[in-house]
């Protein structure tokens, strides 16, 4: 398998349920690192808590499994002392947008040089299927048995408003585009985020009447469209689809660059 060298074979198979999409996100990241030829000793994986956050512990790279919602502040600290390393945060939708939401907007505002991968399974997997800030309106979770009456966050708009300089969205059924966005995110200067829609067949799938993990992935094929395709659609056709692609990619001085130039100035 491409990228196998970034996986710790002693920890595979993972604890994830059969058909859980998390492993596909990990496979895409390891493939992206392989394509970029990043040595594994130059990568540090940081995670919070959640099913998806187990990722850090499967990597054959330096890694740290922190507290729920706190992966970004820990990653920020690591990047400040080791700006030469690629610091990659692997986080769930609850981890990054609920309990960690405040850290998220400030990481974006600072444009700190981190890569954040959001595993969007629309639910809290680890704790039993509670709704998250990314549960679509009307969908069920154990805390919303009749359907969620809340509106979900739009990760792209939220992060763009907060100042992130690279934002992409993909899904686990689209492996090649996911690898491409991850490559671009890891190479980006500044705060780079890739939201990957993935399936939790055990909670989200069961509660929302999805038949199988494969059916959940086929659903993505039918319901996600690229920005290029969406341009040719009518407003009405577009409104029922989830858009994917690179939404924001801009050059903007990153926190690490600004700090370096300030140090240089002060040492004159």
């Amino acid at each position: 398998m491409q990228g196998e060298q970034y996986l710790n074979p002693k920890r595979i198979p993972t604890i994830w349920c059969p058909g859980c999409g998390n492993g596909i996100v990990v496979h895409a990241m390891m493939t992206a690192l392989d394509k970029l030829s990043v040595p594994s000793e130059d990568v540090i994986f940081v995670s919070g808590i959640g099913c998806s956050s187990r990722t850090a512990t499967y990597a054959a790279c330096d890694n740290i499994h922190t507290l729920h919602g706190r992966a970004l502040p820990v990653a920020t600290a690591i990047k400040l002392v080791r700006p030469d390393k690629k610091v990659i945060v692997m986080s769930g939708d609850g981890d990054s947008l609920a309990i960690g939401g405040n850290h998220l907007i400030h990481a974006a505002r600072r444009n700190i040089d981190l890569t954040l991968i959001i595993f969007n399974n629309s639910i809290y997997g680890m704790t039993g299927g509670q709704v998250s800030p990314l549960t679509p309106s009307g969908k069920r979770g154990t805390t919303a048995p009749y359907g969620s009456i809340e509106e979900q966050f739009d990760t792209v708009k939220l992060l763009e408003g907060a100042g992130a300089s690279y934002i992409a969205r993909s899904g686990v059924s689209f492996f090649q585009p996911t690898v491409k966005y991850m490559k671009n995110a890891v190479s980006h200067n500044g705060f780079a985020v890739v939201e990957v829609i993935t399936q939790c067949p055990i909670y989200y799938g069961r509660m929302n009447k999805h038949k199988s993990p494969a059916e959940m992935m086929q659903w993505q094929k039918e319901n996600m469209v690229s920005l290029e395709k969406a341009e040719k659609m009518t407003e009405e056709e577009r409104s029922s689809k989830i858009l994917m692609g690179e939404f924001v990619c801009k050059e903007k001085p990153s926190y690490i660059e600004k700090r370096a130039s300030m140090f240089k100035e002060l040492c004159k």
Partner: peptide, 11 residues
């Protein structure tokens, strides 16, 4: 098959 497998189990 390899790209959709969540468990690095097929190549």
């Amino acid at each position: 098959c390899s790209q959709v497998c969540p468990d690095f189990a097929i190549e």
